[in-house]
Amino acid sequence: MFSRFREDIASIIAKDPAARNAWEVITCYPGFQAIVMHSWAKWCWVRGFKWLGRFISHIARVLTGIEIHPGSTIGRRVFIDHGFGVVIGETAEIGDDCTIYQGVTLGGTSLTRGAKRHPTLEQGVIVGAGAKVLGSFTVGAGAKIGSNSVVVKPVPAGATAVGNPAHIVKREAPAMDTAGTQLFSAYGVTQNSDDPVSKVLHKLIDHAVAQQEQIEKLSAAISCAGIACDVNLDKDKLSSEQINSLVD
């Protein structure tokens, strides 16, 4: 148990530049404290002391602002950053090296007792602040959930989900530093992580402007051929810069 806690502390120090030393993590990081108390509650829960497990979970919520059901499963080196308002349901499973930020809910959408109702986060998942992951599906290894996203369907490994309801961004190669080590994406924010709907709208706007230019050329060619073409080319002319600025 103590070796596991040492791993958790080292992971927090590696992921949070504000963490200066182990003593500061132990005494001042509610995410670490909540995970320690969850281990106590889980010990009671699996041995049949259900009420005691729930009571320890309740005390942890009062002290840390983080609610973790004692029936949930949490892997090694899980970092709950800031953590206030985090809710993790009974059948949720969180893999190793996952990072969860404040206001996150891993919730269930089924009322069936004894069934798997909450999501599974595989290794290395990052869930941004305020995100809601709702349902008994899997978020693949290395996936990222953008802040305030509402995820109600599976997320492939390595993909990014953003928006409400969340849209899946095409998987991209992870960012690396000069030493070849994968960079940690705080809050799940990565470069070029625009909303996929916004990207599609930009493409549609550019396509419409290209069509407008082609129509203008055709109209000019028809006029040069001596064919009357009663088209006002200057009326309601599209400006891609102006419309794209409204979509951003």
Rank of each mutant, 00 (worst) to 15 (best):
E172A: 12
I66C: 02
H82L: 09
P196K: 01
F55V: 02
K235F: 14
L121M: 10
R6E: 15
S240N: 07
R6G: 06
T138R: 15
G188Q: 01
V169S: 04
Q214C: 13
T91A: 07
C224N: 07
T190C: 05
V152H: 01
A220R: 12
V152P: 02
K237W: 10
V152R: 02
Q33N: 08
C44L: 14
P154I: 07
Y187I: 10
K170C: 02
G89I: 01
D195V: 04
I94Q: 04
A220M: 09
D234V: 09
V133M: 08
H38F: 05
G158V: 09
A92P: 09
I13M: 15
A129H: 03
D8F: 04
A141Q: 08
Y187G: 03
H58K: 01
M37Q: 03
V125I: 14
A10Y: 06
T105K: 03
V231K: 06
G65K: 01
V231G: 04
A157L: 06
K237H: 11
V169G: 02
A157M: 10
C98N: 10
L218V: 13
R20G: 12
A179Q: 11
T138F: 10
G180Q: 08
K237L: 10
S147H: 06
V125E: 05
I94N: 00
V36E: 01
N244G: 03
R61C: 04
K116F: 05
R113M: 05
G83V: 05
Y187L: 15
H202D: 14
F84D: 06
A19T: 06
I80K: 00
G124N: 11
A179W: 06
H118P: 03
T27D: 10
F2I: 10
S39E: 03
V127Q: 06
G107E: 09
I215A: 15
V189S: 07
R171E: 14
E93H: 11
W45E: 00
A14R: 09
K235H: 14
G85I: 07
S3W: 07
T160L: 12
I126H: 06
I26D: 04
Y29F: 15
S219P: 05
V209D: 15
V104R: 04
N164D: 13
D230E: 14
E241Y: 09
V127M: 08
G135Y: 09
P30F: 11
V127H: 06
P174E: 11
E67L: 00
H82V: 11
K217C: 13
E24C: 04
S185H: 11
A220K: 11
H167P: 01
L134F: 14
W45F: 15
Y29H: 02
C224H: 04
T120Q: 05
A210I: 09
V152I: 15
F49R: 00
A210K: 09
V151E: 13
S3M: 07
K235M: 11
S245E: 15
V197Y: 07
K116E: 07
L218G: 02
A208L: 15
V104N: 00
I26N: 01
N21Y: 08
K203C: 13
K42S: 01
V231C: 10
D81S: 12
G83Y: 03
G140D: 01
W51A: 12
I222K: 12
T138L: 03
